[in-house]
Each structure stands twice: as structure tokens, then as C-alpha cells.
Amino acid sequence: MDILSLRTPLSDSVIQTLKVGMDVRLSGVVYSARDMAHKRLCELVNTGKSLPIDLQGQVIYFVGPTPAPAGRAIGAAGPTTSARMDAFSPILLAAGLKGMIGKGYRSDRVRDALRQFGAVHFSTLGGAGALLSQHIAASKIVAYEDLGTEAIRQLELVDFPCIVAYDAFGGSVYDAVGPQQESAKTA
């Protein structure tokens, strides 16, 4: 299968070319954020306050890495379960976010928001934190240092392997696979 190399930030014209199931190698800056960082960011958006990072055109990676060994940018850094961010993602998409990286299913509300705001969701290899760490060249904390592993980090990806799991047209790579997910319908 063809592999598409992409650089962040993602432009609207590039996003229009992405379809579910496409293999992608992602390079450039993305931001790490998981549950607690999402909760804080959305509280700021909901109260009209400014965010610690500019989300315009950016990509968030749902990850909480292990500490970096000496001489390395980062420790193990695979994706966490995307569904736990379902309540927050539509708010951040409305605020300018253009892409996310995680593992597993997204809710119908997230799907609708991806279509409404012209954004995409990538899935990467769950449980392959050692392999994926080799595709992260730099990492620095840019917000919420008190959250430890859950702090927001600016990460520099190099040919980071993922697939387009949800595209900007309402499609999902999981639709064709196995049984329908009840949890995704009700989340």
C-alpha cells in the first residue's frame, strides 16, 4: 500500500485529500495531551480565556510518555485510548485543532465535529511505545508541568507511522471491521 508523508501543521487542502485507511508518516510538531490536560484546556475555552498553546491548525497526540533515558528525546511514547477524550475533542476542534493521534474508536459527536471543522483523526500502534519513541526527535514541556507525564509537551515527529482512522467526510476505518461498537454510539 502507498504511504503518504505529511508535515504538520495540516493545511485544509491536505486534509481534503485524506481518506480512511490511508497509511501516513507524520513529521513536524505535535502537542501531547491526555485526560487532565484536555479538561484544563476545555475549561479555558469554555470561560473565554486564552490557551497556553495556539491550537490553530495543530495536531494533538494522546500520549503520556515514560521518562526519557539519558541521551534520548523521550521514553516509551505510544497512544492512549482516544475515546476518553471524546467529550473534549469537539470543543478543541471548534477552537482550531485540525488533527489528533490516538488509538481506538471515536464517538459520533467527534465524527460530526471532524466533518464540521474539516479535521482528521489518526490511529497509531497501541502498545508499541518503544517502536514509536524512535519516531520522536525532540520533546519539551510547554504547559501544565505539574501534571507530570500528563503535561503538554511539544513533540517533533519524524516519519511517525499512523493511519487515517476518521477522515473529514464522516468515514471511519473501523466501520468495516468486526461488530458495531455500542460504546462509540452512546459516548
Partner: peptide, 14 residues
């Protein structure tokens, strides 16, 4: 991933 974890001393999973 398991080979990399062992050889490069990176945990299997974050």
C-alpha cells in the same frame, strides 16, 4: 517493538 524495548532499553509501552 519487543526487540527494540530489550535492545535499546525503552519500556514496551508508555
Amino acid at each position: 517493538n519487543a526487540r527494540i524495548a530489550l535492545q535499546d532499553r525503552i519500556p514496551l509501552c508508555q
